[in-house]
């Protein structure tokens, strides 16, 4: 059971962002506690990815506040987010296809030797270590990631997020491109990370995955927050109703 009595790990308070007059995110407030998985749901274009990109530093919010452990922080670019131990697995995976797994894993945070030159051997060794834990079948360490399968690419993106001791993890549809076996592996990984006390924002379309993996679900529609519910108190249909109708279920609406 998630303890929600203390300070939230992350609080996105009253966040708004507009693109050319269209309010992509309109005064949305969500929070996340340590050891919790919060699902973000909604139709395509509901504003989930945009909201989360304000936290990962890909976008800058127009207004609102971001609080980490109760402290207000400024996140203006991905470096700021990384400095707050926020790691993101993007839907597009955000991999540079022309370089190998180790180069992608350490992109922007390369290991260097004492003369400041890249320590490729060390990076490959570290990559082998973490991949051995996440995806023991992964063997293609020295080819560009364009030569990898969808699942292998996904595991590189996941490895990048978990290698650097993330405290807050953002996963944008991590299982969309995966087969059943790999989806199961991601589910197990989420449970493991949760147990370690990470907070995870999970953008997910599959209601079954939401019910299985998430503690709470925040539903968005047209840039606005419909509501946040505890998944134990609702059914699949309740959540579907929120997504489609944009209304909280009657028994929780009080």
């Amino acid at each position: 059971m998630v303890d929600r009595t203390g300070t939230p790990l992350v609080e996105l308070r009253d966040i708004s962002i507009a693109f050319g007059g269209i309010k992509a995110v309109d005064h949305v407030t969500v929070d996340l506690y340590p050891g919790e998985v919060v699902g973000l749901l909604g139709h395509n274009g509901a504003g989930k990815s945009t909201l989360i990109k304000c936290l990962s530093g890909a976008y800058q919010k127009d207004s609102g506040h971001i609080l980490i452990n109760g402290q207000e922080v400024e996140i203006n670019d991905p470096r700021d987010a990384r400095a707050q131990n926020i790691e993101t697995i993007y839907q597009t995976l955000a991999l540079a296809d022309n370089v190998d797994a180790a180069s992608n894993l350490f992109l922007g945070r390369e290991l260097v030797n004492k003369w400041g030159f890249l320590d490729d051997a060390q990076m490959e060794a570290e990559t082998r270590k973490i991949m051995g834990r996440l995806n023991p079948n992964f063997k293609k360490f020295n080819v560009p990631v364009s030569a990898l399968s969808g699942g292998q690419r996904q595991s590189v993106a996941i490895a990048r997020a978990v290698y650097f001791n993330a405290k807050i993890l953002i996963m944008d549809e991590p299982t969309a491109a995966l087969g059943p076996h790999e989806t199961q592996m991601v589910a197990e990984l989420i449970q493991e990370l949760k147990a370690q006390g990470l907070g995870i924002f999970l953008i997910e379309h599959d209601i079954h995955n939401v019910m299985k993996l998430c503690d709470r679900a925040s539903v968005m529609k047209n840039g606005q927050l419909v509501g946040t519910v505890d998944v134990k108190e609702v059914t699949d249909d309740d959540i579907l109703g929120m997504i489609i109708l944009g209304k909280k279920p009657a028994h929780l609406a009080a």
Binding site: P78, T92, A96
Partner: peptide, 23 residues
């Protein structure tokens, strides 16, 4: 052998990913 070169390759491979990596 340097970060500079690695970033040149990464930007060429996927400019968006490079930017999201904090480059």
């Amino acid at each position: 052998r340097t970060r500079f070169g690695r970033y040149v390759f990464a930007i060429g491979g996927n400019p968006e990913a490079a930017a999201l990596s904090g480059i």
